[in-house]
Amino acid sequence: MRLRSLQIILWVAATAAVLAFAAVRWWPATDDTQAAASVFTPAFALADSEGRIRTTDEFRGKFLLVFFGFTSCPDVCPTTLSEVAQVMDDLGSDAGSVQPVFISIDPERDRRLGLADYTKAFHPAILGLAGSEAETQAAAASFKIFYEREADTASQDGYTMAHSPGLYLIGPDGAWLRQFTYGTPAAEILSDLQSRL
């Protein structure tokens, strides 16, 4: 009986320690992310499919839903673009307040393959942009995202791309609002947007 009480006390102590560790480990991290997320204004200046330079400035007053990807990406990219398309459909009369943007991280090949054909196949509202290598790197840096061209002889054209697969929300004032991680359901993105409109 004595031993049993001791066991219980030890288990309670161990559980408390685990919870305390978890609290210390997770709470500050969450706070940091939110604080950092509220202070920057991402920017891009990139050509659309007709060669016109489009910039973040021209979309002030609208929410921007920004995705970086490449059109030779049959697995990850269509999932996110399909969600964006679903969100635009479901926004109904509010759709005009949100501009979805697809930024190519493989601009040369995507311009050759046809950027507008690709984005329109998902939704006519999606604006496809493909700039120069330097402009693309500048845009990615300002969104604090990563992409990289990986040599791969077993891939079409001898290379493939690795990239941050998130979807980024920018407010009407141009400030970064949040990221939707890869796989966030369209309904969740929709309700977040609706709560801000």
């Binding site: 493939t160 791309m161 690795a162 697969p165």
Partner: peptide, 9 residues
């Protein structure tokens, strides 16, 4: 594979 926030295949 999505590792450290980067997707590759």
């Amino acid at each position: 594979v999505v590792q450290d926030g980067i997707a590759s295949m």
